[in-house]
Design a protein around this nucleic acid. Structure first.
Lengths: 222, 222
DNA sequence: TTAAATATAGTAGTAATACTATCATAAATA
DNA sequence: TATTTATGATAGTATTACTACTATATTTAA
């Protein structure tokens, strides 16, 4: 008997809960695969429906549009990652050790092993790297934010910010440093793989070293 | 008699050079206004044509699609910014002073005064903050990169990276630190204005302080 | 000077996208 | 058994993204 991880989602993100039916779960599963394969711009509900073997109208019963679906997937990811972090740093007292562990988790490709039934976390991690920013880089960011769509991201940022403050109570920018770590864990990965001259890296390990250096020199000073 | 600044653009970015005609210049001018007003997703060539008072087909003679136009605008911006940097840091010997000046330029809203005839740099700066990443966060990033579309961004990153190395020859991640400064100058601004709990800031000045702290503690250590 | 080439504008159309609405049927539940 | 709920199938609309074609104005070349 295995414990089943479940991420509680904001109800305003969907019209019908995708976790409540087979079709819904298929929408999540296949959308991750399709967005990963053809990018968010190339992805349409029509293609998704064909991939699943259902109709466009079927998808629209679950999600209002593809933007909401992307926001759903990113929110799920941040919720899942926050759980991973709390699980993996549980019982670690030293905030410096915790922060290092978090940086590693942020910058490391997820292994396929620990898959949640209908979401391939490894593919989703790559989607977040390439498409994640598009969830909030829109004209509706204000309204989406009012509806709490970015709460999981903000919560994670707050968690990391608090650990930063534990490490160095006098450091003045804990939340900005937290969002910098999160964004750069992803952007440096994207750059390394697609625009390598914007980085000094050839593998993940080096991104982790860079982020550790960035964070801990900033914190040691104070 | 005033010197006229001209940014040389990659010819593969357009079908017909928009700087070579009135319509072309109008396309640049009005696209900046429209993208700023309705966001890149809401922006279409049809709306642009109506705004200018020409036809859709007229726009398509200059740009293959709106993605190319966005890449054109971002490339123009980075080229323009590199010129601003070289101009404003000219004659400054001390690399630390130069780097501080660059951080300020990156994070500061452009004044309306110094406008280049057909591009409103102030609006364009805000477009780069909100839409700039979408120029490379696509499935075609590899092909676009092969065609050198991101050269101005990469050049700017190299310039900043070199100054970082001048400041601290032993620092191991000059290019990644440079791309981090560039991206965070924009993202922290976007977060401050739209998702404030991801930052510790209320004004630009504070973003500059954060970036200075981040960079110079990293560099002093070595 | 005139004819040919070229640049530019405008009209019209197509295929795909992003939806909405309706009706039928199968399965679950009360 | 009646009724809700989930899914399926079909059709339709407005907008988007683009292409092809025609008309006209301007430049250039013979």
């Amino acid at each position: 008997m295995k414990a089943q991880l479940h991420i509680k989602m904001n109800e305003a993100l969907f019209l019908r809960n995708p976790e409540s039916s087979e079709l819904g779960k298929n929408i999540l599963k296949h959308s991750v695969q399709l967005i990963h394969r053809m990018g968010f711009e190339g992805f349409t509900f029509k293609k998704l429906a064909e991939d699943i073997g259902t109709t466009e109208a079927g998808i629209y019963r679950y999600f209002e549009n593809k933007h909401k679906l992307l926001v759903y997937l990113t929110a799920w990811y941040w919720g899942w990652l926050e759980f991973q972090i709390s699980f993996q740093t549980n019982n670690i007292k030293d905030p410096v050790v915790r922060l290092k562990k978090i940086i590693k988790l942020l910058a490391t490709a997820v292994e396929d092993a620990e898959q949640t039934s209908y979401v391939n976390e490894s593919l989703l991690h790559q989607i977040i790297i390439a498409e994640g920013s598009k969830a909030y880089l829109t004209k509706q960011v204000g309204e989406d934010n009012k509806q709490q769509f970015f709460k999981p991201y903000k919560d994670l940022c707050a968690v990391i910010g608090n650990i930063i403050t534990e490490c160095s109570p006098k450091y003045k920018y804990p939340r900005s440093l937290a969002s910098t770590i999160i964004e750069m864990a992803h952007f440096q990965n994207f750059f390394m793989n697609n625009l390598p001259s914007l980085t000094d890296f050839e593998e993940e390990r080096e991104i982790i070293s860079f982020l550790n250096d960035l964070v801990f020199t900033s914190l040691k000073k104070t």
